[in-house]
């Protein structure tokens, strides 16, 4: 454990950070619930053993790839192919983990190895847009724990009950994660004109890869390539004109 986290633990600041993290992670947990229930239901329909579906949420904890895996299982795909697809769908986490690492310079390797399990599109969004330049390990732990519990519990509920939440409620709740992304991007791009332009470039690239009639781009690659290209172009174009931080 690093020096800072030991000091935190001594004076109780650790638990304060942890509680703040729990609160920050709450919107993510709310957003995960309906998706996790849907995952459980789909796994059940696809004939995946109940235990395997819940274990997948417990061990993998990555929504997009889990849906793809169940789809492939239902289609009778071979296991090595499913593992390979999972790898490619989740490659975007490299970019996200790398970005989050800038905020965690004080943590020991074992701390980081634990927290890494909780890096998702959503926790990355919360952590990387945080105004503080350094984050406490306890805070990050708090951020990831409720979403993880919601993900596993929701999957269990979906697998056990098989039924849906009322259609209208489920459909409304699925806006939650997008609302959160919007809630995070608005302060980012209104405080800096270069970030605003970079967001526009990413939007354009994402739309092109989604709608172009020439080639199919999977969701994972669409997000990874649009993000990396837009950020790279931004770094080249806006060399230091508003290096706010």
């Amino acid at each position: 454990m690093s020096q800072e986290s030991m000091i935190e633990e001594k004076n109780g600041a650790g638990s304060q950070h942890f509680h703040r993290g729990l609160l920050a992670g709450l919107p993510v947990a709310i957003g995960y619930l309906p998706i996790a229930v849907a995952f459980g239901v789909i796994s059940r329909t696809a004939g995946v053993p109940h235990l395997a579906a819940v274990l997948m949420s417990l061990l993998v904890f990555a929504g997009a790839s889990q849906f793809v895996a169940v789809e492939l299982l239902a289609a009778g795909a071979a296991f090595p192919g499913i593992v390979a697809t999972t790898f490619f769908v989740n490659l975007r986490h490299i970019l996200m983990s790398a970005t989050v690492s800038r905020k965690l310079p004080d943590l020991s390797r074992s701390w980081l190895a634990v927290l890494a399990f909780g890096i998702t599109d959503e926790s990355f969004s919360l952590l990387s847009t945080d105004r503080r330049s350094r984050l406490s390990g306890y805070y990050v732990l708090g951020v990831i724990i409720l979403p993880y519990l919601a993900w596993v519990t929701g999957s269990l509920v979906g697998v056990m009950l098989g039924g849906q939440l009322p259609e209208i409620l489920e459909s409304s709740m699925e806006i939650a994660l997008y609302a959160m992304f919007l809630g995070l991007i608005v302060p980012e791009i209104t405080s800096s004109s270069s970030r605003f332009k970079i967001a526009l470039i990413a939007l354009l690239l994402s739309s092109i890869s989604y709608w172009n009639p020439l080639f199919d781009v999977s969701e994972g690659w669409r997000i990874t390539l649009s993000t990396a290209t837009a950020a790279f172009l931004g770094t080249v174009i806006f060399s230091g004109d508003d290096y706010d931080e």
Binding site: I189, I223, A228, A231
Partner: peptide, 22 residues
């Protein structure tokens, strides 16, 4: 600087066009 620009770019790609099917 590249890392500082990642969040805006990533959020944008995560939101659109996915939100249309939410």
């Amino acid at each position: 600087r590249f890392m500082l620009y990642i969040p805006s770019a990533a959020l944008s790609a995560l939101i659109f066009p996915g939100i249309l099917q939410a």
